[in-house]
Design a protein around this nucleic acid. Sequence first.
DNA 1: GAGTGGTCTAGACCACCAC
DNA 2: TGGTGGTCTAGACCACTCG
Lengths: 251, 251
Amino acid sequence: MTRYNSRSPARAPAPTFSPLYRQIKDFLIRSLESGEWGPGDAIPSEGELAQRFNVSQGTVRKAIDEMAAENMLVRRQGKGTFVATHDDPRSFYRFLRLVPDDGRTAQAVSEPFSCESIPAAPDVAAALELPAGSLVLLVKRLLRFNGEVVVFDQIYLVPELFDGLTLDRLRGGERSLYSLFESDFGVRMIRAEERLRAVGADEESAARLGVAVGEALLLVERTAYTYGNRPVEWRRGLYCTHHHYYRNELG
Amino acid sequence: MTRYNSRSPARAPAPTFSPLYRQIKDFLIRSLESGEWGPGDAIPSEGELAQRFNVSQGTVRKAIDEMAAENMLVRRQGKGTFVATHDDPRSFYRFLRLVPDDGRTAQAVSEPFSCESIPAAPDVAAALELPAGSLVLLVKRLLRFNGEVVVFDQIYLVPELFDGLTLDRLRGGERSLYSLFESDFGVRMIRAEERLRAVGADEESAARLGVAVGEALLLVERTAYTYGNRPVEWRRGLYCTHHHYYRNELG
DNA sequence: GAGTGGTCTAGACCACCAC
DNA sequence: TGGTGGTCTAGACCACTCG
């Protein structure tokens, strides 16, 4: 492994210098990407990785620390370090920030009702970094909290990665979509960006959510990324915020 | 300094065990709280702190690392470690997540127009952890992006900490309120929680923001905390999201 | 008891910054 | 040139988990 302070001979093409722990982190990310370890699996112990890379344990540690801070790995003292997964009660709807007004921990239930292949609108194609007019998968679904419909989602997916996705396969009840994407298609959502606006309900949304046309809804547009900052999903969600709110922490 | 693994004699009252670096972190936080170092000041170097606490530099390092991750301190290689401040172009409106649709980096300008002392409504008192009916300061202001009014804020402040606050002192143009709170009142905002909803504009908001009554607005309720998770501000903001959106990152 | 992550040390050297 | 944070090492011991 290239040492942090190694220098190339004069006049060699400019190399990229990066600290050892960064190189190790990159290597681990590539391993995750290639599926070497699946979601929920334990990765090798710090000591073993240190040996394998011929570095000290502290260096491996720093690489893993960063990945844990970015939610790619999960440390468990005494047991090992594990690949993060959405298929786990602790992180079922990890990216869903909607919370009921009364602090009750509501179980969200997904009700997909449509799944089709359509040409991407310009904004969707742009968000997914696809050529204009490419085909994308569109999934529509409702989300219920304690029986009450609160979210109407239109979810656009990069088709290559979700080959064979049908409405039937989406019906799984209480697992989150991302959990299903992970186990059935090997697509792991690592991070996402959301853009929020307030809008008046159009006819379809009003009907789906059981509110009046024109009523204020929270519009949440999300781009979700897998390893390497590759966008693989874009969704437009309409949230009814009568009895729920979107919770955010500022640091 | 108590060692991590020190044990009390049997039958002694249960002590609180915590790692050395945690104890050092707590000590540093208390020092910040007491004003030992002001916003923007440099704290002592890692080496000096290590000597002072009789620990190794790595231990001090871990304490500072965590505080930097929580935005209480800022590291600058070659220069030192500094107390975080809102009075800095890099973090003027650190907690404001509103972004113009066209990526232009708009300068936000604050226009306070009212400042009075009133009895706190129950929800405000609860958020600020004050007895019901306590007096609080209420500041009303508009926020402009490139001249356009986009936010109408009603800001409730714990009165003890903001003694002598007047409308005149609030007019400062382009600095953020938190920058002013920090320099003029010694109150430093460390973190905040926001609750977002979509609502229809009432008459006052509609007039202030120049939209129709009933139009969809983004309601942002924020509780802001200083050291020790003490709530010191609660605000209700109404955002017009015609040409701006609220940006959020999910990890 | 064996294996894992968590804490801590002492010391080395590097990269950056200011004077 | 001297001081600061940033990287890296080798090794010790602790805390947790599980068989």
